[in-house]
Nucleic acid binder design. Structure first.
Lengths: 236, 236
DNA sequence: CGTGTGATTGACGCCTGTCAACGTCTGTGG
DNA sequence: CCACAGACGTTGACAGGCGTCAATCACACG
């Protein structure tokens, strides 16, 4: 396949590197290449809103987005993040429902839009692609189920510890064990499902206990085993 | 409710009536028919356990099961119910992960077991079947996401009202608006994600407010609009 | 230097979980 | 037929986790 027939705007967007597309054959990749559109978004911009009808889905080439639902009195509940290599919005396309989350840029993002028709075509033609997509959805469903139990049964303290570890796994740490993602206290609260003030108090408690160090919005993990212990079990 | 009906044997188990299988052709139905096994289970029996490896999935022909995760100190978190026409366990098969829930019989059940190999074969052969399965998974994922927000943001009171309405939609009402499902207070608590005592107190509060009537474990819904109002918004 | 957003801290109180005691019902065995 | 055990339901007391409100601080930006 000649790279020369890629759309100009998309020339940097290496779709091939995105795992979900790795099992497409040349023809299928060409179809994908032809139908996709690249979009760049600045921090704070919204890719799509909860409730909107989706006529395609997105794969993230660069950047970070938060996907959240808007609840009581506008309070956001962050469901997950999307980063390079992730796909988003496919849930609504496949279930033929309106988007169940809003996607907002946290770090300057570039994504590819892929029309629903292409998705359906690929699913129809390539059962292996279909299987991979299904597998991904099922994994996500398993995570959601786990999260339901966590929120229902764990204390805010336990969940905060867990979220810090989840952020570690999702975004990695740099050399000195600092989380590579920058979130406001409010955003952390919206992940944990609690009030901003509670997050602040608990973070400073963790700090006193030498579990973490705080440098502005940067969070450094000092004692991961202890955090795991807090997140998992409560001995009283 | 009469429990004296004979449990149907496998030859009577009309797989065709289960929606997910409706788009299979004759050949595919024959494959399904050949590979499935019927199982009968009494109340309290366990179909499969969280953490076990699944080498197939189940479709429910009759009865009701609860699917739950076991959390802190053995407390159950009910994720969903399965009743006639539902399929269960496919998530683990497709994601190739261990079962994320335990499935326990609430009402005398008959299910068909379908081996993983058959599922994969059907997915491979019939893209329409594949799409339907995907659609179902995505819908479930959407519901799980909504539930995450509910638990995170709503009070126990609001969630209980919501669960009562969910039970209404899942199991229907009889003539006098009584829920067709019988659950212990503890099971309701395990759905709502709260303590049994809280459920009891709130139920009797709802009763005082003439929203429901209680007849042992049977719950009669008297004022559905009011319940909806409670479950949706809190003005303070 | 004013403005605005986010972070922090303190005060306060309610919702809710926990513990304990007791009531109710059903099935079982003597 | 009665006693008993065990599961489940109910009620009360109590403490504390956590949300809410309000005031203040920190910092960036035009």
């Amino acid at each position: 396949m000649k790279k020369s027939d890629t759309i100009l705007l998309c020339q940097n967007c290496a779709v091939e590197s995105i795992s979900i597309f790795s099992m497409l054959n040349m023809d299928e990749k060409r179809i994908l290449e032809k139908s996709k559109t690249c979009i760049s978004l600045e921090k704070g911009e919204i890719l799509y809103r909860e409730g909107s009808r989706m006529n395609g889905f997105y794969c993230v080439h660069q950047g970070v987005l938060k996907m959240y639902k808007t609840g009581i009195e506008g309070k956001e509940q962050i469901i997950r993040f999307a980063k390079a290599g992730d796909i988003m919005g496919y849930r609504s396309v496949l279930s033929q429902e309106p988007a169940c989350t809003t996607a907002k840029v946290i770090e300057r993002t570039s994504v590819c839009f892929i029309p629903a028709s292409t998705l359906f075509e690929l699913v129809k033609q390539n059962s292996q692609f279909s299987m991979t997509l299904m597998k991904q959805t099922c994994t996500e469903l398993g995570e959601a189920n786990k999260y339901i139990m966590d929120i229902a049964q764990k204390t805010v303290r336990e969940r905060l510890a867990e979220i810090l570890l989840l952020l570690k796994d999702t975004f990695d740490l740099d050399k000195d064990n600092t989380l590579q993602i920058t979130l406001t206290r409010e955003e952390i609260a919206n992940m944990v499902g609690t009030a901003t003030e509670s997050v602040i108090r608990l973070l400073s408690e963790f700090k006193s206990d030498k579990l973490i160090a705080l440098h502005g919005r940067k969070i450094q993990l000092l004692d991961i085993p202890k955090l795991q212990k807090i997140s998992n079990v409560t001995f009283k």
